[in-house]
Design a protein around this nucleic acid. Structure first.
Length: 423
RNA sequence: GGAGAGGUGGCCGAGUGGUCUAAGGCGCACGCCUGGAAAGCGUGUAUCCGUCACAAGCGGAUCAAGGGUUCGAAUCCCUUUCUCUCCGCCA
């Protein structure tokens, strides 16, 4: 949620910056200003009325104590009128506040000045790449064929027992999954992140706080009997750890990492983009989250990008990093870097991580603040990113390292897998 | 799932209709005292909204959450929720 103060101070600047997102926010921002003014005026009227009511109650108490019942009765009548007035004002204010909130949550985060203009993925700006986006000499099999050939992932059984998008990992495939999770967590812990094991189901309050509700209602699995949602990412429970809290500046940065299964309904996609492991309803991911001060949040973002590129480097995967353009930027993000690995058999880049600085946008909704050096409570900045999502990493590892009768496992994983080749 | 007891400031804890502007203690901050420290003494110590200059001051709200009774609610009533104890079930 955007800070209202920005709109009060310089609404033209807000509108201008939202143009980078290809959004014409003029009308919305004007409406917000109008409703804001009206609700503040109403708040003032209500407060004055309540103050009057409090004063009357005090006088009545005083009169009763002194036995002046008739005088008290007169004031009681007066109090009834004031009370009706305050009730009306309260109703008016509640309605205005609700409208104000509804309008405000429709404003996306302001893009960072470095965000390039653009309307789609094609306009993202590649800022670095490492390793060759090579084409294999011999015919390379896509990972869904390799999965069958080496009997490490069983998509058909997953379909039988649950449905499409729920693969079953078997034997060396299962072991490799577990190895990747352990490796990613160990890397994050070494970089100073505290490991968290969060619940996989969250209540509506949590889903609202991180912005999955109300917008992305249909993208989450919902359990009606208990009104709980399966998490689409551990960002949701981990970030909600900090909901409604005030941190000391000396405690910052807070750095958390979490492994979890992630659940996404993602209805309505077909074709090779979603074949095999490319898009799943259930997948595994290790997430990293930071809470820090506004002064340090962009350094933290760079640090997180460094961390993830370091992990990709250890896995010996060709990768590239892009800065998302305005049209591709998520609603809550001010700046996002995407990481993609090269998939040799599919001859395409696969997105494996997305690292964002939300600045104070999430904090405003979460009511996450920190007490700064001068003792004032300020919204903290939050950041998160995948480090990393497993399925596409697995796809790239299988495809890029395949040979006639085996698939080589990167050296860094040997201690975790207990084998050097899938055969 | 059943029965009972509870939820008060950073923490402990008092408070069963107006003196709550929430006692007292602990913790923390600052000051006095001291060669320095401890002890002692003194002062201060929540969050949000509004007014305003994101100051001070002032007004309003908040005693788990929401609603109600009342001129007036931490206190009475209703609903929800969470915690604890016992029973049941269970990896």
């Amino acid at each position: 949620m955007i800070d209202v103060q920005l709109i009060r101070d310089d609404s033209l600047e807000v509108v201008k910056r939202l143009k980078i997102r290809n959004m014409d926010a003029g009308e919305l921002v004007t409406r917000i200003r109008d409703v804001d003014a009206l609700r503040r005026q109403t708040q003032k009227q209500l407060d004055d009325t309540l103050a009057e009511s409090n004063a009357l109650a005090r006088q009545i108490g005083e009169l009763f104590k002194n036995g002046k019942k008739e005088e008290a009765a007169v004031l009681k009548d007066q109090s009834a009128a004031v009370k009706q007035q305050s009730k009306d004002l309260q109703e008016k204010l509640d309605a205005l506040n609700a409208e104000f909130h509804d309008l405000l949550v429709r404003v996306p985060n302001l893009p960072h000045p470095s965000v390039p203009a653009g309307t789609s993925e094609a306009d993202n700006e590649v800022i670095m790449s490492e390793g060759d986006a090579f084409t294999p000499e011999a015919a390379a099999l896509p990972h869904w064929d390799l999965a069958k050939k080496f009997d490490i992932i069983d998509f058909e059984s997953g379909t039988k027992i649950t449905g499409s998008g729920f693969p079953v990992y078997k034997g060396q495939g299962a072991r490799l999954q577990r190895a990747l999770i352990a490796f990613f967590l160990d890397e994050a812990i070494a970089a100073g992140y505290t490991e968290i094991q969060p619940p996989l189901l969250v209540n509506p309050d949590s889903a609202f706080a991180t912005g999955q509700l109300p917008d992305k209602d249909g993208q989450m699995y919902h359990i009606p009997a208990d009104d709980l949602y399966l998490i689409p990412t551990s960002e949701v429970p981990v970030t909600n750890l900090f909901r409604n809290s005030i941190l000391q500046e000396s405690d910052l940065p807070v750095k958390c990492t979490a492994y979890s299964a992630c659940f996404r309904r993602e209805a309505g996609s077909y074709g090779k983009d979603v074949r095999g492991l490319n898009r799943l309803h259930q997948f595994d991911k290790v997430e990293i989250v930071q809470v820090t001060t506004p002064e340090k949040s962009y350094d933290a973002l760079d640090e997180m990008v460094e961390h993830v590129t370091g992990v990709l480097r250890k896995l010996e995967l060709p990768f590239r990093v892009s800065r998302l353009c305005g049209g591709d930027l998520g609603f809550a993000a001010a700046l996002t870097y995407d990481m993609e690995v090269w998939s040799a058999a599919q001859q395409r880049w696969l997105e494996v991580s997305s690292i964002s600085n939300f600045e104070s946008f999430q904090s405003n909704r979460l009511k996450l603040r920190y007490r700064n050096a001068s003792g004032k409570n300020m919204p903290a900045h939050t950041l998160n990113g995948s480090a990393l999502a497993l399925p596409r990493i697995l796809a790239a590892l299988l495809e890029n390292n395949q040979a006639e009768d085996s698939i080589a496992i990167p050296a860094v994983l040997h201690a975790y897998t207990g084998f050097e080749h899938i055969r």
